[in-house]
């Protein structure tokens, strides 16, 4: 399958120079949108995503309301210019699936019972994509939810792992995803070690799967620290500013 293309160099590093267990550079900015209740801009290597959270707010149509809890809605959308070949705008099979699994990755931490009959809307827009946008979207949405003041049991962090040239590696790039043997996005609540999303494409042995999962958990923990840091920094930097 991957006979012609070498994804791991002679020195054991990957094509972009990373070690097998290394993440791409991450940048997180909190509160980038003024009119949203919470927002976050997230960069993972060449991936650029922006998440906005609105709510809790009144839910229409009324028959969609739940008398006991808030309804969480998640929309994942890729910009037409986010990929090399222009993507036809609008939802497709893939983005509907990603919206569903991402919502289910975040729902377990949100205390929806606090807001009966309301809706919590999460929008994730992918501006540039280089494999791993669903995990970047979940990371961004999790921070945006916290920024919106939504009560949550913890932050959700997500990362993908995969197998390339017979090796288990963390955080695949687009080439590694296309020419590799396996791709597995994982989302988890780091505090409780609860996995809320796990998908896999490809074939691996049981041992390889376990190794991959361990690597993903370690990656999520590192991302969690960065998410937490970004949230805390939002309020500490402007502390010394003067009024007026």
């Amino acid at each position: 399958m991957s006979s012609e293309i070498k994804l791991i160099r002679e020195d054991g590093r990957r094509l972009d120079g990373r070690l097998p267990d290394e993440l791409r550079p991450i940048k997180i900015e909190v509160g980038v949108l003024k009119r949203a209740d919470g927002s976050c801009y997230f960069e993972l290597g060449k991936n650029k995503v922006i998440a906005a959270v609105y709510g809790p707010r009144e839910l229409h149509p009324r028959h969609a309301q739940d008398a006991r809890r808030a309804v969480v809605r998640f929309r994942y959308n890729m910009a037409p210019f986010s990929v090399e070949e222009r993507r036809r705008p609008g939802p497709d099979r893939r983005s509907v699936e990603i919206s569903k699994v991402s919502r289910e990755a975040l729902e377990p931490v949100i205390i929806t019972e606090y807001y009966p009959r309301a809706a919590i809307d999460i929008f994730v827009e992918v501006l540039e994509s280089d494999a791993g946008t669903r995990t970047a979207g979940i990371n961004a949405a999790s921070v945006a939810l916290a920024d919106a003041g939504i009560p949550m049991k913890g932050l959700v962090s997500a990362v993908a792992v995969g197998k390339i040239d017979g090796q288990i590696v963390l955080d695949l790039t687009s080439e590694e995803d296309q020419h590799g043997e396996m791709d597995m996005p994982v989302a988890m609540v780091t505090r409780t070690n609860t996995i809320t999303l796990l998908q896999m494409d490809g074939r691996v042995t049981m041992e390889e799967f376990e190794k991959a999962l361990d690597l993903a958990v370690a990656g999520c923990r590192r991302i969690y620290e960065l998410q937490r840091k970004a949230l805390i920094e939002k309020y500490s930097e402007s502390r010394t500013e003067e009024i007026p």
Binding site: R191, R228, L231, I232
Partner: peptide
């Protein structure tokens, strides 16, 4: 001190 959801 600023805390985030899930902080002990």
């Amino acid at each position: 001190k600023i805390v985030v959801p899930g902080d002990f």
